[in-house]
Design a protein around this nucleic acid. Structure first.
Lengths: 256, 256
DNA sequence: ACCTGAACACCGTTCAAGT
DNA sequence: ACCTGAACACCGTTCAAGT
């Protein structure tokens, strides 16, 4: 049917309740209406406060002071909500124009800032691991990363794998970071307001390794000092460097 | 108190119920008693049938034809059970004596067989990702892997990171494999008896990439043929090779 | 249009009670 | 000693009903 055929042109006739809205007789502060955005926001609040294992639709609803069932008008399922959170973590993220002479630095920058994003919300790496960025909203990021690898001159099969490899590395690394943090938190305090006591845990772990029987665990004992360090930034960069060197080995020899 | 002080020497007096056991008047087949081993076994059965999301203490109990509460005499919690499953996946796993001349092959063998172990049970990679092999039972495996890297001549900081990097890669790769399988299964059948239709899915994904607008996704389009292949074995080996080459770059130059 | 209340079919964990 | 039954405090999701 054409536009002309539809009786009222721009908008459908207002429903009885819509008509009453302009009055704005809100004595009580009248919360702003629900929306996907507000739900996702509340979900992040619950996530940071309680962790992924306690992130429930009911808790999100409570955070919004709304009945649980109300959420389902905006969100298909809990899985859907988690995917929205994953997608939102990319918001405002930018990848540079590929520069073949600086591809390693560009990948390093990407990896570091993606790690920071993951660290900005509790258990975010677990959510990230469970998703694959092949949705319409996220494909541009995949494209931009592949652009860096391909422009650098990596063979196609390597470039295709490189994105996956780097992403898995980042997610996996941050996931583990989170596990140590959780363990430190539950050890030192028990409650939610316990500060991680990160350093104390690293010391304890080093003592654990160092206390192993010499005959059975020579290598673990030897590495006890470097296995668990208090600066995980350094450990992150080392793993990243290993991957970058591996990738670089596939580059056709470049002449000056 | 000494042994002599305790009235009955070897064993405590039998309880009333223990006393009745020798009669063996079992008309009904009388299930063998519960044990950690039996519980873990049942958990694997439930896992393979229903997946991790539906693996519940109640389902495990049902599998054993026992009340849920009975499990808690053998297992501290569901987390504890998952850890036991993780540990059991290592059972019988062996790592070779480190041979500096064959370290790359040794790591390849390790990675491939660990991947096969993960693939032997549904969602096992997700369970693996959530754990760290620093328990008393699993430390020998960590030691053996570190032995390969250190004996090969890798610097300590690199060797310490290498184990983590490889393990994360394997878990992450298999995790993703599982996600594709799940997606293929729910697409092609819906029920539990649906065969994955793996190839069909790969084709569909390739078409998806190939159908993207040329201007916006030149690299994804160019790589559509290699991003999703029907043989993930090959993709696994490529990622592994990238890591191995990166590690090898830290080796002091070896003379012939 | 937008939200609530109640219900359904599940969870993990505890604990008194049975044999 | 070993297990059961019932209870508690939760889940995700649906759907008729309210305004």
């Amino acid at each position: 049917m054409s536009d002309a055929a539809a009786g009222t042109p721009e908008s459908p006739p207002p429903s009885p309740w819509e008509r009453e809205r302009p009055v704005r007789a809100r004595v009580t502060p009248a919360r702003e209406p629900l929306s996907r955005e507000r739900i996702v926001e509340a979900a992040f609040v619950v996530l940071d406060r309680a962790g992924l294992d306690k992130l429930s639709m009911r808790q999100v609803a409570a955070e919004l002071e709304v009945a649980v069932s109300a959420l389902y008008a905006y969100v298909r399922s809990k899985d859907d909500l988690l995917e929205l959170m994953y997608t939102r973590l990319f918001a405002g993220f930018t990848l540079p124009e590929p520069d073949p002479d600086r591809w390693q630095e560009q990948v390093r920058d990407y990896a570091r800032s993606w790690r920071w994003r993951l660290l900005s919300h509790r258990d975010m790496a677990r959510i990230s691991m469970a998703h694959v960025p092949f949705t319409a909203e996220l494909l541009p990021y995949v494209e931009a990363l592949l652009a860096i690898f391909r422009t650098a001159g990596l063979p196609d099969r390597i470039a295709a794998e490189a994105g996956d490899l780097i992403s898995t590395y980042i997610d996996g690394f941050v996931l583990e970071e989170g596990m140590w943090q959780d363990r430190a938190a539950e050890q030192s305090g028990g409650g939610s307001l316990a500060r991680p006591d990160w350093r104390e845990m690293a010391d304890e772990m080093q003592n654990y390794f160092a206390s192993l029987p010499e005959g059975d665990f020579p290598h673990l004992r030897a590495l006890s000092g470097v296995m668990v360090t208090d600066s995980s930034d350094e450990r992150f960069d080392i793993g990243l460097e290993i991957i970058l060197r591996g990738l670089a080995s596939y580059l056709p020899d470049r002449e000056a």
